[in-house]
Design a binder for these strands. Structure first.
Lengths: 217, 217
DNA sequence: ACCTGAACACCGTTCAAGT
DNA sequence: ACCTGAACACCGTTCAAGT
């Protein structure tokens, strides 16, 4: 039943997932659902946990960087498949078993790599902020990947070029350029994050570095 | 009217913002709203743009790192004030004037700092992925700041310690510890991101570094 | 145990109407 | 120009009832 709920949301967005539409999907009357579930909220909790369950877990014995990287890529593709899940994550209160298992595995990988408890918290928060935030951006894109140049050209044409010179520059000389793919920003950002974590592990024994006080400043 | 809509959403969440509740708030009948707006969607577009407008713009003449940092902190506090705006950003199609002005100012600051067009895209995507993702995490927190230790203690007590040893470790030895504040993760993450951008500006003339190929690897 | 029909208090929105 | 009332097709959910 949760599978069908996810399928409905995938097909028509979260707004199209109603007790009535789900019942129809299952060939049953709306009220029959209440035999399996206390209310709609429980369904939402359930599908969020299932989405979490779709994300690849980091392997216990592997190299932390590789495992964390693979898991981040997996999370990204899962959230691209189920973009409605992002808005749901904000409002859920009770994490399900798949969610807990997932967090446990990530903490274990980071702790096992030698990160201190504090640094593990920094690392996980940063990683997931990036992953979730990237998913939000991808979900908000007005174009779907291949159509980017045309769509952006249409939008840019609406904007007075003299008021928004930088937006025009970026639209014309970057987005509308062959080979542009917003998805590439994920690779770049994830690399930045992983590099920083790796550096902190080497320099500080897993302790937090003090950003902004490095020689780079 | 958009101000009142924002006030309603702030007070009761996005679910409490209905044409009827907004009308009541304005001392008018629901149908009167349609004189100012074509439909509810237009109201949602409007309040998202207004929320964007609350974020401090980077100053044109300032040091890029300081300006970008201040703007990121501002975005974070705005999204904490209006957590419902995050889920809305995913689904909006038409960016409003405040949103456009905001993007224009950010692009101008980054380009002015010497970042290449490609690197500006990398930088902005990474920065905002972090900011939005952090906002998602903060909105999802089951505790409100000061109550963290007690709430987490309650949750942790529900979980079998033998199944989730790392979660227990983190809950007891980190979250439930005096002085813990999830908000500190923002400072850490933002520092990592800004350090990386600063380094790329120094090392590569604003060109993208190749993460993962640095000596840190 | 599993499912249903009728009903209630809600939605956004249409249409025709009032000042 | 600005506002309204009645109505329609939707929601989630309760309750009492059917197999």
């Amino acid at each position: 039943m949760l599978d069908r709920a996810i399928a409905v949301a995938d097909a028509g967005g979260l707004g199209s997932l109603t007790m009535r539409s789900l019942a129809t999907e299952l060939g049953v009357k709306p009220m029959a659902l209440y035999h399996y579930v206390a209310n709609k909220n429980e369904i939402l909790d359930g599908i969020v946990d299932r989405v979490f369950g779709e994300i690849e877990l980091p392997a216990a014995g592997g190299q932390w960087r590789e495992e964390v990287s693979r898991r981040a890529e997996s999370a990204r593709s899962v959230l691209r498949r189920h973009p409605w899940a992002i808005s749901l994550m904000e409002s859920r209160s009770a994490p399900g078993p798949a969610t807990l298992r997932h967090h446990e595995a990530m903490l274990d990988t980071l702790r096992g790599a030698g990160f201190s408890l504090a640094m593990t918290g920094h690392a996980y928060a940063l990683l997931d902020a990036f992953v979730y935030g990237f998913a939000v951006q991808e979900a908000a894109l007005p174009f779907d990947r291949d159509a980017a140049p045309e769509v952006v050209a249409g939008i840019a044409a609406q904007l007075p070029a003299e008021d928004y010179p930088r937006l025009h520059e970026y639209a014309h000389e970057r987005v509308m350029t062959p080979g542009y793919d917003f998805g590439d920003e994920f690779t770049f950002g994830l690399g930045v994050v992983l590099d920083a974590l790796e550096r902190s592990l080497r320099d500080g024994d897993g302790e937090a570095p003090a950003p902004g006080t490095s020689p780079a400043r």
